[in-house]
């Protein structure tokens, strides 16, 4: 039997690799000496590598994020861990107005290559303030790279790439992916600048694009629809939201004439809009067989009640329906 791993184990392996091989790397964040906030992604790192490099900290999102930026400016490759996106918003000034602009506003004479790890932790009746993703907000910012892995291999390898990148990076992982199993592969050191959307399925009828958890839904929907309706899809997992590399998706849409984007965040000014627009403005729309379509969250904060939650989050069946509609 082949060795397997999962998404959470991939992240843990990335940490072990970075702490073992890069003395300029350290981690700071709330709960790191008792990391139940972060699933199985950081278990025992403090015990193995010491509390001077795996630093638990006061409940001060803004100052600890700013301190991460300051250490990055001074030659370290630090990571701040925000166990939930929602709380990280207290630190947006340091991410958006400081780190992302640091290189440009000093004319390239300084830089702040910090990694901001944010975890999406939603569902389970956690309600409006424990469920946000907001990746599109961050992907809007020049100077800030935004990485959202879907596979366990990417969770590990792109976390390493993010930390070793010479630019500030927002690395967003999703707890709904933590148990995702796949075959184990060896660590691959990849320059983040070389990472582009990965094509995980080949087909002829529809180009379908997902990111992070919606890539899991897309992949399942593609499998099911191929069996039930003989619809075959080119499926792309975005991986790096900013800077967005659209070329391969563009070529695929030229072939299929159909584009469906599935994004687990709100519709307005979102990633789905960005992907669709980036494709549309570079092709002759006359080649399209149908209008592009996006599936996103309803325009509401996350509900608490489980009945409404069921309605709120994107389901594989919705994606299948959309694939049927778009091929009609």
């Amino acid at each position: 039997m082949k060795k397997t791993t999962n998404y959470a184990a991939g992240i843990l392996e990335a940490y072990e690799y970075l702490l073992s091989n890069h003395k300029e790397f350290f981690i700071i964040g709330q709960g790191l000496w008792s990391p139940w906030y972060v699933g199985a992604t950081m278990t025992d790192l403090d015990k193995k590598f010491g509390t001077e490099r795996v630093i638990d900290c006061p409940i001060s999102e803004l100052a600890t994020t700013g301190a991460t930026v300051g250490a990055a400016v001074c030659g370290y490759r630090p990571m701040i861990v925000h166990p939930r996106v929602d709380f990280m918003l207290l630190a947006v000034d340091q991410i958006v107005t400081q780190a992302a602009k640091w290189r440009h506003m000093f004319g390239g004479n300084s830089s702040a290559p910090a990694t901001f790890r944010a975890i999406i932790n939603r569902g389970g009746e956690q309600g409006a303030q424990h469920s946000q993703s907001l990746h599109s907000w961050f992907a809007h910012i020049p100077g800030l790279k935004v990485v959202m892995p879907y596979t366990a291999k990417d969770a590990r390898d792109l976390m390493i790439s993010s930390v070793l990148s010479d630019d500030p990076v927002m690395f967003i992982d999703d707890r709904w992916l933590y148990e995702k199993e796949e075959e184990y592969t060896e660590i691959e050191i990849i320059d983040l600048n070389d990472v582009k959307p990965q094509k995980l399925r080949n087909g002829n009828d529809v180009t379908i694009v997902g990111l992070s958890y919606t890539s899991l839904l897309c992949e399942k929907a593609c499998q099911s629809i191929e069996i039930s309706h003989k619809i075959t899809c080119d499926f792309f997992d975005i991986r790096v939201l900013n800077p967005l590399k659209i070329d391969d998706i563009l070529e695929s849409v030229k072939k299929t004439g159909r584009l469906l984007v599935v994004d687990g965040d709100w519709e307005s000014c979102g990633m789905a809009s960005e992907i669709i627009t980036s494709v549309l403005e570079k092709i002759d729309v006359k080649i399209l067989n149908n209008s592009p379509k996006r599936i996103t969250l309803p325009n509401a904060p996350a509900p608490t009640s489980k009945v409404l939650e069921q309605q709120y989050y994107i389901k594989e069946s919705e994606i299948m329906d959309a694939l049927i509609q778009i091929t009609k």
Binding site: L62, T64, T65, A67, A71, V73, C74, Q98
Partner: peptide
Amino acid sequence: IPIATGAGLAA
């Protein structure tokens, strides 16, 4: 202020 604090951590 927090950036300098982090520079202190680095130091």
